[in-house]
Each structure stands twice: as structure tokens, then as C-alpha cells.
Nucleic acid binder design. Structure first.
Lengths: 257, 257
DNA sequence: AGCATTATGTGTATTTTTTACACAAAATAT
DNA sequence: ATATTTTGTGTAAAAAATACACATAATGCT
């Protein structure tokens, strides 16, 4: 085989194909993966999309078979434009859920030297928020399953830790980002919105204060309902006023709760 | 050469040494680097530590020779416990500045497919804050130089972008982190502290309101000065009250400006 | 069917926080 | 010597956050 090729400096070639499917470098390289933490909300509870690890093409390259894990996979060095593209591609391959690259927000890098038993693997975790409707649609993917935040099983690798960090990022970002927009369906009720904020921030709010604050921002508009509500028990339906929301956001808007 | 070795699955071996200094994998792997954005404050201006890229051992592996860049370098797959260890190690090697691994805060991953002309390189950017005294001490390293934030030259690779993102992270984090602690010397004045906050947040504060707010937190204690101030023009010296600061922080304290 | 329970909508007074604002003294610059 | 700049200090007004209670309709239970 072409040993001479293997001896070229890596400045001349990105990699050398010494034999079919073999890639050679002058210094050791880690593998890089993207993992996805997909949060959903069914109107009652915060959920996370997990997959069951199975045997892949080559069983020997698969670790933690049969355990639950975050969706994710290896960077395609030649095709993935960014690591977020890896996240989007792998999520679709593993769960059928098709999200845009810009829906992924970076959580952080996890690089502990022994986090993967096979070789050195650095993973970049990303979270994404999906609307209630998509939560229901995606639930029937074979290996993928939505778990309630309060009922997450033990996960493979260091995914427990990654999930905790992702949740705390979400908790931080809820102050600056339109989390309601992204997790609720287009039409929603104030109790749902409040419950969502309470689930993520892990606190309880006074109903009146929450409603006052939200109304003060002027980002909610009432949806006229065909079935005219005669009772207080049937919650009023709202949708987000996107114009007002965007205007506020571009002015450095900051949701405080 | 040892083609047979190269054909072992990567589950059996992390990498295969096909020839001296050659590492082989079944799929292409990216190189991974850590880059450091080291912020300093000289009492007047926010500064950033940059290095001038020179010829390394092997000139052909070096890109952007002669340009300014962020300190940083390749992950040592076998030795660096985490990518933050890479950052700390490379910063010391390149600038002489010796920081603890926990001083580095992750900024994010930069993974554009063509960001490095040599091969696919994913970098994980980290920022660190150093005290005024260390800024002065480190200034005499050969290749390294402190640049005023307002006067940064064009940088190699995508380091301009990385620096912008790092700064905006710092700007966000100043609301939750003891930035003053880490960037000022032990004894400082209120005008210095205010100027630091103004430099990072890019706003101006009213002097009285700033002082009131800071005093309200009870994290400043006045330093008795040998030269007794007879004039208002000589600013009062303070140090941080670490006990009060830590207590506030563990209670979920949040500096708002 | 009737009754109990639960979920929803709504307004105001109090407290806390934020903001706006001016002058006198000492150091420095001219 | 004079002008300019820097610093320290307190209060009143506005805005925001918090605490709090009752009436109504849907649902659940027997």
C-alpha cells in the first residue's frame, strides 16, 4: 500500500488514505460528536427526547448497547459545514425529527479523557426546543421516546451530566429568549405558559402577577374563540404577537421572572 | 508496513501507529484546538493578550505566519484531561502566563469547515480574566502583547469572530460573576470599578447610583489609607469583602447593572 | 342529579428598586 | 494664580415587584 502517501506532511493533505477506509495523521486526533438535547412541552410537562442505543452496522464500534442516551453522532469531517449541522443531521437520522441548524443552541463541550470507552471523543452538546405539535408527531419514531423531565432514566456515557448542564443553560436562557414561542403551539393559554415557565425555572408564580407581567409586555394577543367562553374555568386562548415580540427583542428586551 | 494493524477495528485500539508519528483511524477525524481570550484591565482600559504567529518546528504546518492571533493550540489527545487543560497548557507555553484550569470559561465551539487552511480544525474558545498585577508581569513575554480592547489588530483565522463572541459572553456573564474580583487588583477605587463595568457593558453610569448600588450589596470594605485623604479628589480605596461576596453568590446572588 | 373540588379570571395597595439630579472640595492642568 | 477635572455625597419621584381574596364555571365524585 501507499506508505509514501502516509509520509506526506499534513500541510499538503488533510488526510491520507493509506488503505480503504483508513485515515492517517501525524498526531493523534480525537473523534468529535454532536449530542442533542431536545426539549418539548406537551402542555403539562417538560419532556426530553431520548434514543435507545442499539447495535449499529459494526457492533464492535457501539458502546452502551440497550441503554438510553441523547441522540447524536460523529462529525462528518468532509460534509458537515459546522458541528451544528452534525447535530441536525444526526437528530434526523436517529429520531426522524427534522430541525433547522439554527434551532440548535450550543450547550458546551464535554471532553473528559475517558468519557467514551472506545477512543477519545469530544462532544459538543446542543439543545433545541420543539413545539407541542411536533412532540406528538415525533413520538412514534421507533427507537426514540419522549421522557418527562421528572422521570428521566439513567443515560449512557456522561449524558446524565450533559443533560443537567443543558437544562441549566435553558434555565438561564429563558430570561433572554422566546422560549414560550418555541415550545408552545401557536395557540395556548396563560396557565400553560405559566406552567411552562414554572417547569423550567422550578419555581411557582402568583397567577395574577404572572398575568399582569405578561400583559404588560404586550406580546400576547387574545384569540377569538368560536366556542364563546361562558365560564372562567375555560382558559382564554392567546397567540404571541410576533411583531411586538421582535421589536422588543431587537431593543434588548429581557424577560424577567 | 503494518497494514494488518491498520485494519484492526477502532474498538480494539484507540489509534494505530502505522509508522513513526502516524496515527490511523477508520473514519476521518478533525484536529481539535483550544483558543484563549485573556482579558486584563490596567485600571483604565480593557485589554486582550495576543501572540504573534511565528514559524514553528515545521514551517509547513504553520499558517498565518507573522499575523496576530489568540493564544492556543492543539489538544494533546493522550495527556490533556479536558479541553480546558489544553487551553491552560498552551497559554503557558505561548505567553508564560500560568492560570488554573478553572479560570477558563468556555465561550463556544467554532467549527466552520474551512476555518483552517491546513485541515479540518474545530476549536473550543475559552476566556479568562487576569488581575491588573499579572497584566503588567506578563507583558514582557517575547511573542505576547497586551492590546487595548479598542485597538485590536486584524487577527489570523477566524479569531476576530471568536474574540467578538468571547467579549459578548463576558458582557453577559458580568451579571452573574465576580468580574471585579478577577480583573482588579486587591485594592481598587470606585471610579476604577465603575470604569471597568462601563468598559465591558459599553454604557455609562451615574456615579452616585453606581456607588449606592455597590454599597447596598455590602461587598466593598474601605481600606484605611496611610496617607489620610484630605481631599475628595483622591479616591477612597476599597477591597472586596470576600465573605459577604461568597455568601451572596451561594444564595443565587445576581449583580444587576 | 346533586354536591364537592379544582381551575380560572381579575385589581389594588404596599414595598422595593430604579432613576434622575446638583454642589462643594481637592487635585491637576494651563 | 486661575481654570478645569475628578471625586464624594443624599433625596425625591417613578417604576417595578410583591402580596393578597373572591366569584364563576368546569370537572369529579357519589
Amino acid at each position: 500500500m501507499q506508505i509514501s502517501l502516509a509520509l506526506t506532511t499534513f500541510a499538503e493533505k488533510k488526510w491520507n488514505m493509506a488503505t480503504k477506509g483508513q485515515y492517517t495523521y501525524e498526531y493523534p486526533h480525537p473523534a468529535v460528536t454532536a449530542d442533542c438535547i431536545v426539549f418539548g412541552y406537551d402542555g403539562k410537562e417538560l419532556k426530553v427526547l431520548l434514543i435507545k442505543r442499539g447495535k449499529e452496522k459494526d457492533a464492535s464500534t457501539t458502546a452502551y448497547v440497550g441503554e438510553w442516551a441523547l441522540p447524536g453522532g460523529f462529525l462528518d469531517v468532509e460534509k458537515d459545514k459546522t458541528i451544528a449541522h452534525t447535530a441536525a443531521r444526526e437528530l434526523k437520522e436517529e429520531t426522524g425529527l427534522k430541525l433547522s441548524v439554527k434551532d440548535f443552541k450550543e450547550v458546551g463541550t464535554f471532553s473528559d479523557i475517558n468519557r467514551d470507552p472506545r477512543e477519545r471523543v469530544i462532544t459538543v452538546a446542543h439543545y433545541a426546543l420543539v413545539k407541542l405539535a411536533e412532540v406528538k408527531a415525533a413520538t412514534d419514531a421507533e427507537k426514540a421516546e419522549w421522557y418527562s423531565w421528572k422521570d428521566i432514566p439513567h443515560l449512557a456515557f456522561d449524558h446524565d451530566k450533559i443533560l443537567r448542564v443543558a437544562f441549566s443553560k435553558l434555565k438561564q436562557n429563558i430570561h433572554f429568549e422566546p422560549v414560550g414561542f418555541e415550545l408552545l403551539s401557536e395557540v395556548f393559554t396563560l396557565p400553560q405558559l405559566q406552567n411552562l415557565y414554572e417547569s423550567i425555572l422550578e419555581v411557582k408564580f402568583d397567577r395574577r402577577n404572572f398575568a399582569n407581567k405578561m400583559k404588560h409586555y404586550e406580546i400576547l394577543s387574545e384569540v377569538e374563540d368560536d366556542t364563546p367562553r361562558h365560564g372562567t374555568r375555560t382558559p382564554i386562548k392567546y397567540r404571541f404577537d410576533k411583531d411586538n415580540y421582535d421589536r422588543l427583542k431587537s431593543n434588548g428586551f429581557q424577560l424577567e421572572f
